[in-house]
Design a protein around this nucleic acid. Structure first.
Lengths: 194, 194
DNA sequence: CCGTTAAATTGACTATGGTCAATAAAGTCC
DNA sequence: GGACTTTATTGACCATAGTCAATTTAACGG
């Protein structure tokens, strides 16, 4: 028979995540070592892996926490301008650093683990689609694609721009970043053309 | 003073890559261990890392080899139908497996290392843009975005579709794959609308 | 050919992610 | 509260990516 989750379990998980937050704040995601996490959380190594499948899933959980704070409460954009602002916000969040980009690429798919990044991205996409419906009805933007398709496509472009901007760490960072910025802007315009 | 590259160096590199090819063919990219590579190539561990920055760069080189065979010779698509076929080919190549998707996400940016995946993707994008120029001139597809922007956007959508299809390994794979297929198709249509 | 120097190679070593059989700590039923 | 079951935790242990000082090999100038 299956028993209810112990409060102890949740407490342990929270301690691990709290430790992770501290470490990421101090040395970034790339510098997070599992040893350090369990040390701060006061648990054994095995406990970490009993709670999280691997280091990357742990980082994804942390990232989801952080992004959730920014994205959970957002309403559907009411007009074209608001939509563009929303995409820009996503772009800035996603392009924060290399780790973020890699984690999103790996975990944000429509069929992810269930709780975490994937759910968050789905939420954002749906909210975007809600806004698109109205704008398409008013003829403010084009209606050649269904709202949910269009909004997922827009998010895909944001991902791509973020990834491009990050790859540009080597070489002339500014130029690459500007290139990504412009790609996102121009492609979005082409898609939204009434 | 800087001396010319020794032929020995190139031979070693080739032996490493050849070993890598064999291993990938046998156990896939995920199953490749550096120990096994140097064992087959008959070199020491250190030699491997003298030639390739890390395991992922090595895998990227192998992937670039493989994709290069398929993509290097392709001509610019002459019409809309050829363009769609080209995107479909890319999709099938990119969505081959999880490793491929991850490597592309990490190394295919416009400012990558110089020789490898990044160069290949740039090539494909440019070739695509060449085709787009003609089609836009003939009014066969829309001209709301510049050719190079449009083609990079299309490639971005292919990436996204490939990533989505791969994330769908968990859960109902078929449904997720079909969803990705349709997204790519509908978004492409919306973008190409005359 | 020979000494000199840059480049390539080596392999023992380290760092760290991840495993698992053993143990402890709840929960459940009487 | 005692017997028993399920769940959580532990930490020694393993696998493997990646490092580096020492060594060997090849190019160069004379």
């Amino acid at each position: 028979m299956t028993r209810k989750v112990q409060t102890r379990t949740l407490a342990t998980r929270d301690r691990l995540l709290a430790a992770g937050r501290e470490i990421v704040a101090a040395v970034g995601m790339a510098g997070l070592r599992t040893e350090e996490v369990v040390l701060r959380a006061g648990t054994a190594k095995g406990t970490f892996f009993a709670h999280f499948q691997d280091r990357d899933h742990f980082l994804a959980a942390l990232l989801a926490e952080r992004l959730g704070e920014e994205l959970e409460q957002l309403a559907a954009p009411v007009d074209r301008k608001a939509l563009l602002r929303r995409l820009d916000l996503l772009y800035r969040l996603f392009a924060a650093d290399t780790e973020t980009v890699a984690l999103l690429a790996r975990f944000s798919g429509p069929a992810g683990a269930g709780l975490g990044l994937d759910r968050l991205i789905c939420l954002v996409t749906e909210r975007l689609a809600d806004g698109v419906v109205g704008m398409q009805a008013r003829g403010e933007i084009g209606a050649r694609a269904r709202p949910e398709v269009l909004s997922e496509g827009l998010v895909a472009l944001v991902f791509h721009a973020a990834a491009s901007a990050q790859c540009g760490m080597h070489g002339d960072a500014r130029a690459v970043r500007e290139r990504a910025d412009r790609l996102l802007l121009e492609m979005t315009e082409a898609l939204l053309w009434p």
